[in-house]
């Protein structure tokens, strides 16, 4: 993190694997690719791409740190892995790195979402993870985009143009998927369905947040943080202002890199 050392941080998540390169406390580059249950390949893939983007050769890497749900699957012999970092620690450190006023990070990932509160040094104070029924919000979002025949970005934009309030079943993503399709088959406008989807996600995340005291400033990480509709609804539901940085998906990877020499 200093003396010109370049450190790589990898976040091997359920849906996507992310890589960042950090030098002298600055982000040099980043890359992401689908994990597709071949974590080693995905890791090598994103690492190479990040190196290429930064114009850095692999031998200049002084270390690599991995977080994410699949972190233990990366063979430490094939890659020069310095250590693994639990997601909640990586999220805390990454969020603090990007915004030194952050004290809570809500990470909405592919399969798991959690809320982590931490102090000014990035030491974790409290963690809460979703319950089993609320699993898979990122997967859900991707499926819904496919079902509605749009990209994930378009799904977000559509949600912002909703005029009528409709709802999907709240219990789990499968019943929500089923009801979104039912709404589609009733002829409900796609914008209203997209908004119902965003509200479902925000609602489940907000429900989880009731278990933990949210310390200001609250930031949101993960792929779904890029949906303005989700963020809008989440703010309303937790009654707290949240902010989303430029690289919400890379918070974990950044934290892993920043945890150089940090906890296992």
């Amino acid at each position: 993190m200093n003396n010109g050392k370049i450190v790589a941080g990898i976040d091997a998540g359920h849906l996507n694997t992310k890589a960042v390169l950090i030098k002298d406390g600055r982000i040099l580059s980043y890359a992401k690719a689908p994990t597709a249950c071949d974590v080693l390949a995905a890791t090598q893939n994103v690492l190479n791409e990040a190196l290429k983007n930064a114009g850095v050769s692999p031998d200049r890497l002084s270390g690599m740190y991995i977080t994410g749900v699949f972190r233990n699957m990366v063979e430490t012999r094939t890659l020069n892995v310095g250590g693994t970092v639990p997601e909640y620690i990586a999220d805390a450190k990454g969020a603090l790195f990007l915004d030194n006023k952050a004290r809570t990070v809500i990470d909405i990932g592919g399969n798991v979402h959690m809320a982590i509160s931490f102090d000014e040094s990035g030491n974790v104070l409290d963690v809460i993870e979703n319950d089993k029924c609320a699993e898979g919000l990122g997967i859900f979002y991707r499926n819904m985009a496919k079902v509605l025949g749009v990209t994930e970005e378009e799904l977000s934009e559509l949600a912002l143009r909703a005029t009528k309030r409709v709802s999907v079943a709240i219990q789990c993503r499968l019943s929500a998927e089923s009801e979104a399709i039912d709404l589609m088959c009733q002829g409900v406008e796609i914008e209203d369905i997209a908004d119902a989807i965003a509200r479902f996600i925000a609602d489940r995340v907000a429900a989880m947040c009731t278990y933990v005291a949210l310390r200001k400033k609250v930031v949101v990480a993960g792929g779904l943080a890029k949906s303005q509709a989700v963020i809008k609804h989440l703010q309303n539901m937790i009654k707290e202002e949240v902010s989303v940085g430029d690289l919400p998906e890379y918070v974990g990877a950044i934290g892993a890199a920043v945890s150089y020499g940090g906890a296992k």
Partner: peptide, 13 residues
Amino acid sequence: HESQAMTRSYIHE
């Protein structure tokens, strides 16, 4: 008839 999840911290799913 409002779809909401916040009661999950009070009553089981």
